[in-house]
Simulated scan of single mutants.
Amino acid sequence: MKKTHRIVLVEDHRILREGVRSLLASDPELEIVGEAEDGLEAIQRVLQLMPDLVLMDLSMPRMDGLDALREIRAQCPDVRLLIMTVHKAEEYVFAALKSGANGYLLKDATSSELRLAISSVLAGKTYLSPGVSEKLVNSYLKGKHPRETESVLGILTQRERQILKLIAEGNANRAIANLLCISIKTVEKHRSNLMKKLDLHNASELTTFAIKNGLVTK
């Protein structure tokens, strides 16, 4: 009897989660054992369920896919991680792979490609959608070294980026402290560091900066 592979699905759009769940329901070797709507919830679900594979989006509220990816990889090194996203740019692909992703699938993929990507990653291989594969090969041939998506955000620590994202999404210090399981004083310290590093002076300016640099969308 073949093993059933356990999957946690991380996607903030319910209709897309339902679609993927429906596509995979006919495969007796795959089982979606948990779902999450954002990066923070994804980490919790993975630690609770210890799945074989995490199928995860990059752009999500509260904590984005890259931050969640790094945290899951650090705490669960054996879990296979497959990104499923609309982002085709090389910067996103390289950042995801550098952060520990085992595969990178575009959301315009067919159902058969989704199954191929999942089976490849579960088999220990690295899977890249054909569209991004061609771009990566061409970049290497031309000697290009894509920048990561962080750009100016690169001067911030991972925690500072998490807090900046939460501030930009309208969360107060207490709410941020509760979400990240840290003290309010720690949040205030990070907020102060953000303003000093970025030469910004209030939550409104932090929010505008986060939107301009693609950390959140409005």
Score class of each variant (00 low, 15 high):
Met1Tyr: 06
Thr4Met: 11
His5Lys: 14
Arg6Met: 04
Ile7Gln: 08
Val8Thr: 05
Val8Cys: 00
Glu11Asn: 12
Glu11Met: 04
Arg14Asn: 08
Arg14Asp: 12
Arg17Leu: 01
Gly19Ile: 08
Leu24Met: 04
Leu24Ser: 03
Pro28Cys: 05
Leu30Thr: 04
Glu31Gln: 15
Ala36Asp: 09
Glu37Arg: 13
Glu37Leu: 05
Leu40Asp: 03
Glu41Thr: 07
Ile43Gln: 01
Ile43Val: 15
Gln44Pro: 00
Val46Ser: 01
Gln48Gly: 03
Gln48Thr: 07
Met50Tyr: 07
Met50Glu: 14
Pro51Ser: 08
Met56Ala: 02
Leu58Gly: 02
Ser59Glu: 14
Asp64Met: 10
Leu66Met: 10
Ala68Tyr: 00
Arg70Gln: 14
Ile72Phe: 03
Arg73Trp: 07
Arg73Ala: 10
Gln75Ile: 06
Asp78Ala: 10
Leu81Ile: 12
Thr85Cys: 03
Thr85Met: 01
Thr85Asn: 04
Val86Trp: 13
Lys88Ala: 05
Glu91Leu: 04
Tyr92Trp: 14
Lys98Asn: 12
Ser99Ile: 01
Ser99Pro: 02
Asp108Thr: 07
Ala109Asp: 13
Ser112Gln: 13
Leu114Arg: 10
Arg115Lys: 14
Ala117Leu: 04
Pro130Lys: 09
Val132Leu: 00
Ser133Trp: 08
Glu134Ala: 10
Ser139Gly: 15
Ser139Trp: 11
Arg147Lys: 14
Glu148Ile: 11
Glu148Phe: 13
Thr149Lys: 14
Ser151Lys: 13
Leu153Thr: 04
Thr157Gln: 11
Gln158Arg: 13
Gln158Trp: 08
Arg159Gly: 01
Leu164Cys: 09
Leu164Asp: 04
Lys165Trp: 09
Lys165Arg: 15
Leu166Pro: 07
Ile167Arg: 07
Ile167Asp: 10
Ala168Leu: 04
Ala168Thr: 08
Ala168Gln: 09
Ala168Tyr: 07
Glu169Arg: 06
Glu169Met: 08
Gly170His: 05
Gly170Pro: 10
Ala172Asn: 15
Ile176Val: 09
Ala177Arg: 01
Leu180Ser: 10
Ile182Met: 14
Ser183Asn: 09
Val187Glu: 04
Lys189Pro: 00
His190Val: 13
Asn193Pro: 02
Asn193Trp: 00
Lys196Gly: 02
Lys196Gln: 15
Asp199Glu: 15
Leu200Met: 10
His201Gln: 07
Asn202Glu: 07
Ala203Lys: 13
Glu205Ile: 04
Ala210Ser: 09
Ile211Phe: 08
Lys212Thr: 12
Asn213Gly: 05
Thr217Asn: 12
